[in-house]
Amino acid sequence: MPWRLEAWLAPMVGVTTGLVTGGTGVFVIPAVPYLQALGLTKDDLVQALGLSFTMSTVALAAGLASRGVFQVDDVALSALAVVPALAGMWAGQAIRRRIDPATFRRGFLMCLLLLGAEMLARPFL
């Protein structure tokens, strides 16, 4: 993506991602394809995705809380889900260190393709 487009495209992607997240609870579209298109290094891409997902999660929690639908009872169960997530992050870091950038990018794009296919197939299952 040309650098000159980033200044005006980034806010539009942010607003669109916020609208999609608010309506569906899914943070992926369009933020992830946009961040991938920036041509970041694999470590910078993972960091940018982490920041995006963290901010989206906090904003979604705040939105749910403002509507009175944030269930505090579910926080303990959600906290338990952090343990396997951290294990996955550790494994992902180990794999990311060992693969070259081109293989990482191909794998990343394949995961996006699979995610998109799953989202398209969901209404038919």
Rank of each mutant, 00 (worst) to 15 (best):
Gly116Arg: 02
Pro11Gly: 01
Gly23Cys: 05
Gly23Ile: 05
Val15Arg: 05
Trp90Tyr: 12
Ala91Tyr: 09
Phe53Asn: 05
Gly68Ala: 08
Ser52Arg: 02
Thr17Cys: 04
Leu120Trp: 08
Arg106Ser: 09
Ala117Glu: 06
Val26Ala: 11
Thr21Lys: 02
Val15Asn: 02
Ala117Val: 11
Leu113Thr: 11
Ala91His: 06
Arg97Asp: 15
Asp43Cys: 00
Leu45Pro: 01
Ala7Asp: 10
Val26Gly: 00
Ala87Val: 14
Ser56Ile: 01
Gly116Phe: 07
Leu38Gly: 00
Gln71Lys: 08
Pro123Ser: 13
Arg97Phe: 06
Ala62Cys: 08
Pro123His: 14
Val32Asp: 04
Leu109Lys: 05
Val28Thr: 15
Asp74Gln: 08
Ala79His: 07
Ser78Asn: 14
Val83Met: 06
Ala121Arg: 13
Val26Ile: 15
Ser56Thr: 09
Arg97Ala: 15
Leu5Pro: 04
Pro84Cys: 12
Ile99Lys: 01
Ala31Met: 11
Ala10Asn: 07
Val28Gln: 07
Ala76Trp: 04
Arg97Gly: 12
Thr57Glu: 03
Gln36His: 01
Leu125Lys: 03
Ala85Glu: 07
Leu64Pro: 02
Asp74Trp: 03
Gly116Leu: 11
Gly63Met: 09
Ala121Ile: 08
Val58Gly: 07
Leu112Tyr: 02
Gly88Val: 12
Leu38Ile: 07
Val72Arg: 13
Arg67Ile: 02
Ala7His: 13
